[in-house]
Nucleic acid binder design. Structure first.
Lengths: 339, 339
DNA sequence: AAATAAATTGACAGCGCTGTCACCCGGTTT
DNA sequence: AAACCGGGTGACAGCGCTGTCAATTTATTT
């Protein structure tokens, strides 16, 4: 059994290792007949290039880094799946690297990661897309990167985003159309700017429909189920309580529903509830949650695509990409009670 | 700015590169004073070893592979977190590799992965822990690996498991103690043997308590919410319907609750529901779900620990490890109605 | 103090691949 | 016929590190 190295492939094919390298890397200027000889030898020895050697010699690793700091398992998995599927199709591997966006040492951590693993590029997901110290490191190091849903310095890198504000606008209009006038809003974690921006859509819809913004209907949440519960307690404790609550994500909406159930309010009879993200909990909960579906996996694929194109030197003519979210009507929203 | 390579560190410290290598790898037989000189040079140049070079020269990559095929985002994330935390602490990286356990080419895929990336070891999670073609490749290739919750050929590798059957037994006893006599059981996906084994605990508890096994109360599920709904429809359609349903995982239990709500049954008044896993949905759902908490992250950490020990040549004196699950009592279970 | 063992260190040859550059060869151009 | 061109190919020098083994220094024994 001959060891499957480039040398042995070259020997078997009767060519130099450089030619094998050319064939493996799909470089031009190899005669068709030579290419076939080499491919035959590769098949015979079942040769696969050694990534470490390639990386050491060629100064690129065919590995990209995926950085995230998101407590939502579903979000992370969707992103991972999107990134992985695109990477695999193009012969790249992915190194995942969860980190803490509030840690003052993150950028240092990223720096170390880059140098040790020699990753070729990086994908940043919210809220890391907005961490300037990380952006600085990446730029100083001249490492290609792509961001998902950035809200700052957008010109700094290619990015992919969704029309969150618009979707939130649509959802709010939907609630208004159902007759709701007092619509509570639970905002997302302030560090997750993209989530925060959903508030803009809410406000725009109210303004559009000549409904006054009532500050007491606006509560700061932190993306967690528990923060949704707290916010709901506050909103439902109001003397003039809202007839609908729109939470900036599904987990918080689930918290609202829990409090409503516990207070004996029926949904959507006494209270309509809407969420955002369409996580699995949205359809597993009772009544099923009206929400907005985000094409997370598609975003991740698109982002990866942009990154890989960049790595291959292809000019990215469209360095920004906007994907559309869609409203999912389920059972947690209904007509407002006529009072 | 001097490039941070081992040569420059050696030159700066006035020693050979081999000595630097020894210091970096914490090898013995380096005089304390020399070690300090080298560490000083390392700090000065801010040196970090290049993983590719190390891997190429040393025939190990300091990367382990994590293989999984699990539709549950929470499970996967917990495993990843456990593996990553242990790996980072010991200077290892993780390559994640989701795959399809039913694909006849999986083992081939694993084989390619091993050869290309030169990973040092592998962690297998259910249901891959039981895929024999993968085990064969790993063994033939002599690649160290550890399995989480395997049910076949346990002697083949170190492994970590939980006392699922016992926990299911406890849960069933709990339901019986609440007065339930007709307890429906929704079994897990047949390919996930570990989940399947939860049925053993259920049966043991019934036998123990002199309750006859009624085949009509036993339904095959497939771990998904939807399969839980279908199973619930079947169970609740029985003329003598169960007063409690124990589902082999939380998603299916959530499906049961959805059907119950839609049928106007109150939980736990008319029907008690119990799940297994303590996924986030368990406490976000109303009423919150009585379930069994699995120490998934701890299992993953333990498994990683076993693997890394093995990689470092330390003898693993305890190649198998059993972690305990715990029963979480919430609001979805209550006394059986006195008929 | 000589002999022996143990600890410490370095020289050097790769690991398997890619980048550089020189070379060869048939076809064009002058 | 000489000069030129460009596709096709190979020789060879590393990339940055570790393993091997020999050399040197230091500690221990007799």
């Amino acid at each position: 059994m001959i060891k499957a190295t480039i040398d042995n492939v070259a020997a078997l094919a009767g060519v130099s290792i450089k030619t094998v390298s050319r064939v493996v890397n799909k470089e031009p200027n190899v005669r068709q007949s030579t290419r076939e000889k080499v491919l035959k030898a590769i098949a015979e020895l079942d040769y696969r290039p050694n990534f470490s050697a390639r990386s050491l010699a060629g100064n690129r690793s065919f590995v990209i880094g995926l950085l995230y700091d998101n407590p939502s398992a579903n979000y992370v998995i969707d992103v991972q799946d999107g990134v992985l599927s695109t990477c695999r199709a193009q012969g790249y591997d992915v190194l995942i690297h969860p980190c803490n966006h509030q840690d003052p040492e993150v950028s240092r951590e990223v720096w170390d990661l880059i140098r040790q693993t020699r990753i070729d590029g990086v994908i940043l997901t919210p809220p890391l897309s907005d961490v300037e110290s990380i952006l600085d490191v990446l730029i100083q190091r001249q490492l290609p990167f792509v961001r998902i849903a950035p809200t700052v310095k957008k010109a700094l890198s290619p990015y992919v985003e969704t029309n969150d504000a618009e979707a939130a606008y649509d959802m709010t209009c939907e609630l208004i159309a159902l007759g709701h006038q007092r619509i509570g809003f639970i905002a997302g974690h302030p560090d997750h700017k993209a989530v925060t921006h959903r508030f803009e859509g809410y406000r725009a819809a109210l303004v559009e429909n000549d409904i006054d913004l009532d500050d007491s209907l606006l509560v700061q949440g932190y993306n967690s189920f528990e923060s949704g519960e707290q916010a709901a307690q506050q909103l439902l404790g109001l003397e003039a309580r809202p007839s609908a609550i729109f939470a900036a994500n599904d987990d918080m909406a689930a918290g609202v529903m829990m409090v409503a159930h516990q207070s004996g309010l029926s949904i959507p009879g006494d209270l309509s509830v809407a969420g955002f993200d369409d996580t699995p909990v949205a359809h597993q909960i009772w009544p099923s949650l009206t929400t907005v579906r985000q094409p997370i996996q598609a975003m991740a694929q698109k982002a990866t695509d942009l990154l890989l194109k960049q790595l291959q030197g292809k000019d990215v003519q469209l360095p920004a990409s906007m994907l559309s979210s869609s409203l999912i009507r389920r059972d947690s929203t209904g007509p407002a009670l006529r009072c």
